[in-house]
Nucleic acid binder design. Structure first.
Lengths: 202, 202, 202, 202
DNA sequence: GATGAATGAGCGTTCATTCAT
DNA sequence: GATGAATGAACGCTCATTCAT
């Protein structure tokens, strides 16, 4: 595929992201995408097989972006707590960024069970998230601040679950000023659960 | 409102629940509702203002059901751990029940930000959930198994976040056999985070 | 199916027939059908599965009408030549009627190879036509005016082929005044071929 | 027009013929033509005014090909029956060739009445066919095997009608193995009708 | 000469909503 | 109370045509 075509496709994906972020997943029309991209109605179908194809690529793009952002963040830190903090910071990002990306992601969740392509992409996203969790937990165990008998798989699953759960609850409440509050809750709860020596996650 | 009218409305709501559980939120048509309810197409519009009105009542009904179920469960227990366990057990319910109710609830989440009625209902649901959390955390502090300086508000928020996060991740993976696994992870993580004496949730 | 529904469906079929007769098969839109039927655009899809379903029923209706008309005509006569004459007369009908029905039929022919439903209906039409031919040829042989060793199958095929060939050529020339001329040619050629004692159709 | 231009136009016409033969007249797109011709999408509009212009030239090309083939065939023979046989042989050609050319021709028939250009081309084709018929009938009368009082115009019209009628019926049945059967029926019927001394075509 | 990205009118189809019965 | 026929706006999608390169 040519550079130009690739650029056009990205332009359409970004337009779709913006359109969904503002108008919502379910009311998204091809006309919306065209309008946000500043092109004509037919362009989307010219560059993508169909609307579902756009959404699939968008989900992949969004989850990749979220993961990359989080992955890069934890690489900057070299302690378990440092990485964990960076992870949560990256996941929460800023209120604006979060709405732009994570809100669109939530819209996709409802579609996962109706679209195996979406499910596949989400499964990959989970895999990526768990790998971040494993990296943090392993390091914490090496550092001796996390119990050595802690089940890494379980822990990484619970980390992502709590992050998603907190983000969703924050987003649903639509109070931007609670952003820091939820971020703190998320991080504190993670630290508490991971550093408990009466660990049950075994 | 007459008993008959009330009965008809419930019949329609249950039919809608079933229809969404099987066919999905976005492909739900009034014809579907009528088919599942075994009535004619016009009935829905006769008993509800419009489709959105049905969905609003359904969301209310579903969140009430989820809450009631969880509330009743914790009333059976009289220790913090007992109540917490009962809470998670009730939230996870059975795979089938969970799909029936929580999957529909996830479908609604994407709509919350576009519909203030939906948001209001979800806010009420959160309030209810937090009250369950508060009850458990308070009792745990009285029992002395949870740190006395733990922030009850934060703890109750984190409890619900983790439950929702775990449920969503489990549902998205579509592997029924992981139901117990996720339930265990959820409960163990909650206990670990709540019983940590190096508590940071303060 | 109720009487009323059946009536509506017929109304739509007749509207489609008229629309195709005037505007052509390929430019026919659901809006055209609605306009000709004097109803709204959605009606067609309410009473038929889709556009193709309308066309299928229309082809069946048209071929049935053509056959019935021809069948009834030959029942009025009791000699081979009388029946043959009646057959050709009925097939040519009047210029107006012929345009209304046979022109639409020609439009369908191009679709037969792309639609097995259409092919099935056309095959049935051919079967019906051949049965008329067989009846005439058998009677002619009994009367002794057609060679007794004439192959009835072949003869009935050639009869319908000539009728269709003449009708198509007449219709393509779009000279209404040639209607009688072509009808005469068709009948004379049929009689000539069927009464030739140096018969080769054996 | 330059040789190159002429060559390109022929390339496009042949590609169109192939595309229609395989995909059908109504689903033919300019993209199809480009694909079959192995050129880019814009080429067709560069060498032809528009799509209809391509089809017009294609119809002309196809009818000319059919006629030429038939004309050349009868020039090889020198008796009426020989020429008639050669005519029918040429018209039926082989199953594959017939599908390639005559099936496309049938697709055009439905358009004739909506496009005066198409009609003109078809009228010319009929003229050519009738001239073949006249040549055969005249020779047969000279040879004394066809009645001298036979109407040459009528006879030539009936000859082409039967040929087209038989070809269409054979094509519609989509049974390749009936090719010889229909060819035989066509020829035998023609001979029977033309050699009948009780001739009515007068 | 040739390309193929872009356009936008127009298609078939869906479906919430209305309303006569 | 209940029905379901009818409506028509709005959707995803196709494709002939245009035109900058």
């Amino acid at each position: 595929m040519s550079k130009l075509k690739e650029k056009r496709r990205n332009q359409i994906l970004i337009a779709s992201l913006q359109a969904i972020a503002e108008k919502g997943f379910h009311s998204l029309t091809l006309q919306d995408i065209a309008d946000y991209a500043g092109v004509s109605k037919g362009v989307t179908n010219y560059h993508f097989k169909n609307k579902e194809d756009v959404l699939r690529h968008l989900l992949e793009w969004v989850t990749d972006k979220i993961y990359e952002n989080e992955y890069n963040a934890i690489q900057q830190e070299h302690t378990a707590i440092g990485k964990l903090t960076a992870y949560v910071e990256a996941a929460f990002s800023t209120p604006a960024e979060n709405k732009r990306f994570f809100r669109v992601y939530i819209d996709f969740l409802g579609q996962v069970r109706h679209n195996s392509n979406f499910k596949e992409i989400n499964d990959k996203f989970y895999d990526n998230c768990w790998s971040i969790g494993r990296e943090i937990v392993s390091l914490g165990q090496e550092e001796g601040i996390f119990p050595s008998n802690m089940d890494i798989e379980k822990a990484s699953i619970s980390i992502r679950s709590l992050i998603d759960g907190c983000l969703i609850q924050w987003l649903m409440r639509e109070q931007e000023d609670l952003h820091d509050y939820y971020k703190t809750i998320c991080l504190e709860t993670l630290i508490a659960s991971l550093t408990n020596n009466n660990v049950v996650n075994q």
